[in-house]
């Protein structure tokens, strides 16, 4: 464990050096994600210029949910961005062999290799939005809820990671699975709004099948209302653990099915 941590630190340091070397690159990336976020907010703003509330939520509450949902998304983006590359081209080009020849866990190595600073855009916006509305929204703040807040975010993040690992691993069978990651990952859009606006089928789908609702709306709902911690927070933890286990299972099955693409 200690060794892994040390390796991780070295790899991250390498990444940061690269960032320092290509400052313009980092700026383009971070600014791009920042503008992307700003447009997301502008969208909510324009909608609310026409209506006082949406499905019983005020503008500030929706912004809080939106802001919260960006934190797990941003953290996953920061830490595990290389999984996209596994799906899109690492396996296809035969470059995955590299990870298999090293004396560390290939999954750990793939993930540790990239430290995606572009994610700063999402994280900064997410945090800023939550702080911005914290004054005008009646948040449920107790010692317990503060602890749960810190506790639940890594689990929400792992839902993203699990989905990327599972869908990325399909590349071991079909060479390139970027489109599957793209398709499934795209469903995170559902997490930004109250699930009560969807039809029952879609609501269940984003709760239990592709559980992005647990990366945004459900945990955020608890911090807004204090309701139902067992489902909103406990559910996040359980779903996260279940999905991570399934994802690791698929990954390992995939690894044993992997045949190098050769060149």
């Amino acid at each position: 464990m200690h060794r892994l941590f040390k390796i991780y630190r070295i790899l991250v340091a390498q990444n940061l050096k690269r960032v320092m070397e290509y400052k313009a690159d980092f700026l383009t990336g971070a600014v791009s994600f920042l503008i992307d976020q700003a447009i997301g907010i502008a969208f909510i703003f324009i909608i609310f210029s026409q209506i006082p509330q949406l499905a019983g939520f005020t503008f500030e509450q929706i912004v809080f949910i939106y802001g919260f949902s960006q934190i797990p998304k941003g953290l996953d983006h920061l830490l595990t961005d290389n999984l996209w590359c596994v799906g899109y081209f690492i396996v296809k080009k035969g470059d995955f062999d590299k990870y298999l020849t090293r004396p560390i866990n290939p999954l750990f190595h793939v993930i540790a290799e990239t430290f995606q600073v572009d994610a700063v855009g999402e994280l900064v916006v997410g945090i800023a939005l939550m702080i911005y509305v914290s004054g005008s929204v009646n948040l449920y703040i107790t010692p317990l809820s503060v602890i749960l807040f810190i506790l639940v975010i890594p689990f929400s993040m792992l839902i993203y990671t699990a989905i990327k690992i599972a869908t990325g691993a399909f590349a071991f069978w079909i060479k390139s699975s970027g489109f599957i990651i793209q398709m499934v990952y795209g469903m995170n859009e559902f997490a930004k709004y109250p699930t009560t606006i969807y039809s029952p089928f879609i609501r269940n789908f984003v709760t239990y099948i592709i559980p992005f609702a647990f990366t945004g709306y459900y945990p955020a709902l608890y911090f807004l209302t204090g309701q139902n911690p067992l489902f909103n927070i406990g559910g996040t933890v359980i779903i996260s653990v279940i999905f991570m286990s399934i994802a690791l299972l698929i990954w390992h099955k995939g690894l044993s099915a992997y045949e190098s693409a050769g060149s």
């Binding site: 909608i47 026409q50 209506i51 006082p52 509330q53 949406l54 499905a55 390139s176 970027g178 489109f179 599957i180 793209q182 398709m183 795209g186 469903m187 859009e189 559902f190 709004y193 109250p194 606006i197 969807y198 039809s199 879609i202």
Partner: peptide, 29 residues
């Protein structure tokens, strides 16, 4: 074609998110 299919389905999913969002907006208004 798989890539295209992925993007096409992704786009449709997005349409549905927006559809429900607007439905909620219309009912709230």
């Amino acid at each position: 074609r798989m890539n295209f299919l992925g993007f096409a389905i992704g786009g449709l999913i997005y349409c549905f998110v927006m559809y429900y969002l607007w439905k909620a907006v219309f009912s709230s208004s």
